[in-house]
C-alpha cells in the first residue's frame, strides 16, 4: 500500500523572515541540527547550573500529540519544560511563545524559530483562526505544544488565572494534556533581571488529562481552563506534607 503523498513544506514560498513567524513552518536538516545542539546545551546547562530535578517523568507520553501546560513566571520556563522530553521528539515540540516578544525583531525571531522551535501567539490579535490552525497542526501532524495558559509571565511568582483560549484548542479532542508545575524558575530568573542566577529548579509532571467529552463551546473552554489550572496548582502542593510546594 502507498502512504506517500506529495506535500510541499507548509511555509514554502515564504521569505525567511515570514517563514520564521509562520504557524506552518517546518524544519529542515539545518533546523534539526540546531535543535539538537541547542537542546543538548540547554539540558546540560540546567543540570549543571540549576541542578534540575524532574518528578513524574513516567507521565510523559512516548509519542505526539500531547500538550504540556505549566505555570509561567520566567523566560526559563519553556527551556525547563522541554528538558525532560526525548531528544528524538525535538523537531515535533513547539513552545508557543509571545509573538510580540519573540517574533518582532528579525534576529530574535530567527533564534526563536531555528533554536527554540517556537511558534508565535500574537496576544493582541490571537483570534479563533490562529487557534484553529494550531489545533489542526497538533492533531494532523501530529506534534507537541508547550503552553503557558496564564498568557503572560507572573511578575510576583504567584500563578495567574488560566485563559480560556487554551480550551478552544483542546475541548472535544483526545489529545492528552500534561499539567506541570515549575519550581525555582522565578528565583533563577526574575522578570526584572537579565541573566539567570544559580538556583535549583524542579519540575513536577502530573498525569495526562483529556477533554474529549468537553463540549467545544465557551463554557467547555472555560471548564478546560479551570480544570487545568486546578491540576497545575494541585501539583504545587507537596503531597506528603500538604505544604505549598511553591514556598
Amino acid at each position: 500500500m502507498d502512504d506517500w503523498k506529495y506535500k510541499p513544506a507548509g511555509d514554502l514560498g515564504l521569505p525567511h523572515h515570514e517563514a520564521f513567524k509562520s504557524l506552518k513552518r517546518e524544519n529542515g536538516l539545518i533546523a534539526t541540527a540546531l535543535h539538537w545542539i541547542w537542546w543538548s546545551f540547554v539540558r546540560a546547562y540546567l543540570n549543571l547550573w540549576h541542578s534540575l530535578k524532574v518528578e513524574g517523568r513516567e507521565n510523559l507520553p512516548n509519542d505526539p500529540p500531547f500538550v504540556l501546560v505549566a505555570n509561567h513566571c520566567s523566560h526559563l520556563d519553556a527551556l525547563v519544560l522541554s528538558a525532560p522530553l526525548d531528544l528524538r521528539l525535538r523537531d515535533q515540540i513547539f513552545p508557543i511563545a509571545a509573538g510580540d516578544v519573540f517574533f518582532t525583531n528579525p534576529a530574535i525571531s530567527a533564534f526563536a524559530a531555528m533554536m527554540l522551535n517556537a511558534l508565535p501567539m500574537w496576544r493582541k490579535r490571537c483570534g479563533p483562526h490562529a487557534l484553529a490552525e494550531l489545533k489542526q497542526r497538533l492533531i494532523e501532524e501530529p506534534c507537541c505544544y508547550i503552553l503557558f495558559p496564564e498568557g503572560q509571565r507572573s511578575r510576583t511568582g504567584e500563578m495567574l488565572p488560566f485563559k480560556a483560549g487554551l480550551g478552544m484548542m483542546l475541548a472535544g479532542t483526545s489529545v492528552p494534556v500534561i499539567p506541570c508545575y515549575l519550581k525555582g524558575c522565578f528565583e533563577a530568573l526574575r522578570p526584572e533581571t537579565r541573566w539567570p542566577v544559580r538556583h535549583s529548579i524542579q519540575i513536577r509532571i502530573g498525569k495526562p488529562i483529556t477533554f474529549e467529552s468537553v463540549p467545544n463551546t465557551r463554557s467547555g473552554w472555560e471548564q478546560v481552563a479551570t480544570d487545568l489550572q486546578a491540576a497545575v496548582k494541585g501539583l504545587g502542593y507537596d503531597r506528603v506534607t500538604s505544604a505549598n510546594w511553591q514556598t
Binding site: 510541499p8 513544506a9 514554502l12 529542515g28 536538516l29
Partner: peptide
C-alpha cells in the same frame, strides 16, 4: 536539493535527506 526536497515533501525524511547531503 533543498528546494526540491521542500517542494516534494522529501525533506521530512531526514535520514534520506542527510544521505543525499
Amino acid at each position: 536539493y533543498r528546494e526540491y526536497a521542500r517542494a516534494t515533501g522529501l525533506f521530512r525524511e531526514k535520514a534520506i535527506s542527510l544521505t543525499i547531503v
